[in-house]
């Protein structure tokens, strides 16, 4: 009664038998002696909480930002050096952009960190991907902060 969809392996020359079974596929990173011990810190708790709180603030900041930049008052065509210089003359917009830069970068970096933790299988891949991520985050945040604080509208 049984109909085989694939040719059974017994018909071909088999490498495996009772005394020499095929290796089974181990679960991803099974818990071994090398597995790091628990950290006993609240880092993940604060990380989780930060994602929720910064997410709520970012909804206001980013949607407001997009509205001002792309929709209101002529839309995207109005954006130029003069427009940016005019906005950053006000401490309010400086603070807005600064908070948005920091929250968005940290929020995105933390999100990518969890993605790397989930999907990078080998410890070395994990390590280097995360180092790359942290380097990019620090660079972007510092450069952006520097520009916001040292912006000179009379630059030539």
């Amino acid at each position: 009664m049984s109909a085989e969809t694939t040719t059974p392996a017994t018909e071909t020359v088999s490498l495996y038998d009772v005394d020499n079974p095929a290796p089974v596929i181990a679960p991803p990173r099974a818990r071994t002696k090398k597995t790091p011990k628990s950290t006993r810190t609240n880092f993940e708790l604060y990380g989780w909480l930060f994602m929720r709180l910064s997410g709520v603030v970012l909804v206001v900041l980013v949607l407001g930002h997009l509205l001002i930049q792309l929709v209101l008052d002529g839309g995207v065509s109005k954006i130029g050096f003069a427009f940016v210089a005019g906005r950053w003359a006000s401490p309010f917009w400086q603070a807005w952009d600064l908070v948005m830069l920091w929250l968005a970068m940290l929020h995105g970096a933390n999100g990518l960190r969890t993605v790397i933790n989930d999907y990078a299988e080998r410890p070395k891949t994990r390590f280097w991907l995360k180092n790359l991520l942290y380097a990019a985050t620090v660079f972007t945040v510092l450069l952006g902060t520097l520009v916001i604080f040292t912006f000179d509208p009379n630059i030539r």
Binding site: M1, S2, E4, T5, L15, D17, V18, A22, P23, V24
Partner: peptide, 21 residues
């Protein structure tokens, strides 16, 4: 019934096998 079969003593590959009941 399309059953996922794996027997390490025969092959390192899992295969589908159909049974009519």
């Amino acid at each position: 019934f399309r059953v996922r079969r794996f027997n390490p003593e025969i092959s390192d590959q899992a295969t589908w096998q159909d049974f009519q009941l």
